[in-house]
């Protein structure tokens, strides 16, 4: 890469969006963000129509974080996720049909119907079942990093968590332990300003989670989480540092969830003006504008159509899939079936 490119002064029309991302790559980032956006929107519709059990935590608006960070990872790297995991799962490569079927509670789901929306994950693509306890992943991820270090692999683990988790003891214990052990971990904070309905400024006098890195002797960085190219660039740096043994890194992505905390949230705790301001920074709209400068508009429209077709297929797959067998509820608590403990 040239020094010019490194400085970010990319020639308009050159086809290069950043030093690391050319137009083809950019189109792929766009596809994956659009897939997440439309997944969330369509799933919500079918949820309201009564097709899906349970609850939903949607991530519209936060797509650039999931996609930008996972794009900097290898298939052999791992992530931990949160109660809002759909975007992380699709970005890390969980099969679309299997993810959809899991939300539908079907046997073909990536967790066989045992996980559901809040525990979406698939070890085969490097994603633990999402951990829906706030801060829960922040300590478990240290073990992933420790195993990579002990086994002398060059794998990296990313822990996604919200700004709300930074007030949990787990955040501090996990970051400190990872720091003293120099573990190959990126702690990726999705700061969407609200823990459920509670604004972050009400629960922390430190406005930027990244500044907490100083307390643990690690590097912290703040990035615009509404710009997938910026996230990709920062993630590339953080992941490279972690892989080289210079981690962990605390990467804070400033973002916003366009939807409520969970289904049925009418968002009475934030102003419509604030929502409009953030909507104007929609990461998909922004990347589409960047790409439109070099790509034919038809290419982007085709991509949108492909995403809809893939979702049509996944939804149909989920609908047609068999329900889990009721008796499968009693398997997989242990490696081998143990006697006793079943109520009559």
């Amino acid at each position: 890469m040239s020094d010019v490119a490194r400085a970010g002064s990319i020639e308009p029309g050159s086809g290069q969006l950043t030093a690391d991302v050319d137009a083809t790559h950019g189109l792929d980032l766009y596809r994956r963000m659009q897939l997440i956006r439309r997944f969330e929107e369509r799933v919500y519709l079918h949820y309201l129509q009564g097709e899906l059990p349970g609850t939903l935590h949607q991530s519209q608006g936060q797509e650039a974080v999931a996609v930008g960070i996972c794009d900097a990872l290898r298939p052999t790297d791992w992530i931990t996720s949160t109660h809002r995991p759909h975007g992380h799962a699709l970005a890390k490569g969980v099969d679309l049909r299997a993810a959809m079927a899991e939300l539908y509670g079907k046997a073909t789901g990536c967790c066989g119907g045992k996980g559901g929306s809040m525990h979406l994950g698939d070890p085969s693509v490097g994603m633990l079942p999402a951990i829906a306890i706030v801060g829960g992943g922040n300590t478990v991820v240290t073990g992933l990093g420790l195993a990579f270090k002990l086994m002398r692999t060059d794998q990296v683990a990313v822990c996604f968590f919200g700004e709300g988790a930074s007030n949990e003891g787990a955040f501090h214990e996990g970051l400190n332990f990872a720091a003293v052990q120099h573990l190959p971990i990126v702690f990726a904070c999705e700061n969407n300003l609200y823990g459920a309905s509670t604004p972050f400024h009400q629960v922390s006098l430190v406005p930027d989670v990244a500044t907490r890195a100083v307390a643990y002797g690690v590097r912290g960085e703040i990035v615009d989480g509404m710009d997938v190219l910026a996230v990709r660039e920062a993630a590339g740096r953080a992941v490279a540092e972690a892989r080289a043994g210079a981690g962990p890194v605390l990467l804070e992505c400033k973002t916003y969830r366009f939807a409520g905390h969970s289904r049925g949230d009418v968002k009475g705790y934030r102003s419509r003006e604030e929502e409009v301001l953030w909507k104007e920074r929609d990461p998909i709209v922004r990347l589409r504008a960047r790409l439109a400068a070099t790509l034919d508009a038809g290419v982007l429209d085709d991509m949108d159509a492909q995403v809809e077709a893939a979702l049509d297929d996944a939804i149909e797959f989920a609908r047609q899939s068999p329900l889990p067998r009721a008796e499968d509820a009693l398997t997989d608590a242990y490696a081998t079936v143990i006697s006793g403990g079943s109520a009559s």
Binding site: C110, C111, G112, G113, K114, G115, H119, G121, D122, P123, S124, L128, P129, T331, D332, A333, Y334, A335
Partner: peptide, 8 residues
């Protein structure tokens, strides 16, 4: 183990 449907 359970949440992963026996994969972990």
């Amino acid at each position: 183990r359970y949440m992963s449907n026996g994969k972990l």
